[in-house]
Design a protein around this nucleic acid. Structure first.
Lengths: 231, 231
DNA sequence: CCGCGACTTTGCTGAGGGGCAAACAAGCGG
DNA sequence: CCGCTTGTTTGCCCCTCAGCAAAGTCGCGG
């Protein structure tokens, strides 16, 4: 088995500030895995036996309820840790993580978690902070759902994605993840029909430019205005 | 200054399993505070310099956005820790905690957090788990908002409150917190008008019995049916 | 190069529920 | 015990948006 180079994880905030030896130690317990587009790292309800770090690509995390309704919880970006169910005391994964594009991840067995945070306490602090940030985000989303209408919510979601996964092009900011109308609907609590209608209207006004699973933001200002205060 | 007795915090899950000496040590750095009904432990946006443990009473945590829209984030029960902004790397409190009834809390300066988790690592683990549970809860709430209609959401909220703060009476399960229509509206993303109409309809059907800031669940089964599947 | 499946668009309809307005309790302080 | 503040109820209107239906399109796999 070829050794993994420590540069793989040096960029992850969770491991920031650790010594090269520590990184090597951490890496020595990791397993690398390829996740071709469409494949899942784990599924909701499965026993949570490993945790992960995304090296490359993007994952989509979804959550489904008893009635079969689904939401898109978040996109995972490179250097994000995910599936840390053990840390939060969950025995099963609370969602499903699917590769939105061909991706590459490291994974560790759950048993490594306890050892690692004992050896590197900063890891626990970082994990808690990222959990806290996600809690804030999720609470903001509740506030958004409770107080904004659909058009405002879609605008907010698109702007957020543009910030998280935007790539500048000559036409505007391209959201660099395959993003269907259905995805946007599951992010905003709308139907794909309404999302489609809304994007069409925006396209007519020159705010965005979109195609099959593709959205380009042309007028960030305009969208921000809609997100804040639908006139 | 009178010493605080360790029995005060022995019941808190965060401190479960610690030795009496540890509890005394932790208590020695704490300050006790009375929170008469209506008073706040902290307000959203204030610099977060202390964290808390509720000893007695109930607190209501609210969060408000730039436009002035407000949601009720959660109720804090005795033995819950709250305001642990430092642990999650927040410099200001992300919400406002107000006493819903006369309450009693302990508080520690932020500086104590680092010392405490270093001395008692189980505290960090517990904190992470409770944070994880809250994240799960909040994500469920997003799913709820995105996929259920208002009546289902109100039913869900009432049932949850009955479980968290219910007290059996001869008429049914009384929710033992002053709970206005407005509160329920802020929990479910509805208007107080709609909440009022819904409760009136339920009262007519004998599902609940309610008055000023008071709700009694008479037919838990019936409410559960509504929450799951509005016919 | 064709066919099929996945994704998107658009029209129509109706109901859920928000906004507004006003009347109505129920405590609380004086 | 009265008046006022705070919380609640209810009616009416109208708009947003989901539901249903059906017709495109794009692109991949054979």
């Amino acid at each position: 088995m070829s050794r993994l180079d420590r540069s793989l994880i040096a960029g992850a905030p969770a491991f920031a500030g650790l010594s090269p030896e520590a990184l090597d130690d951490i890496l020595s317990r990791a397993q690398i895995m390829r996740l071709p587009k469409g494949e899942t790292a784990f599924r909701q309800g499965e026993p949570a036996d490993r945790f992960f770090l995304l090296l490359h690509g993007r994952l989509r995390v979804t959550r489904i309820n008893a009635e079969g309704a689904q939401i898109l919880v978040r996109f995972i970006a490179p250097n994000d840790m995910f599936g840390v169910a053990m840390a939060i005391g969950a025995v099963t994964y609370p969602g499903t993580a699917t590769a939105a594009v061909d991706s590459l991840a490291l994974s560790w067995p759950n048993a490594a978690w306890t050892n690692l945070i004992a050896a590197y306490p900063s890891l626990a602090v970082k994990a808690m902070q990222s959990l806290g940030a996600r809690l804030q985000d999720t609470q903001d989303r509740v506030l958004d759902l409770a107080t904004h209408n659909v058009e405002q919510r879609i605008a907010g979601a698109v702007l957020k994605l543009a910030r998280q996964a935007g790539r500048k092009t000559e036409e505007g900011v391209l959201i660099d993840i395959p993003l269907s109308r259905q995805d946007l609907a599951e992010m905003t609590g709308a139907t794909l029909h309404t999302v489609s209608r809304t994007l069409s209207a925006w396209e007519a006004k020159g705010l965005v430019d979109c195609g099959r699973r593709r959205v380009v933001v042309r007028d960030e200002q305009g969208l921000t205005a809609i997100a804040k205060h639908a006139e």
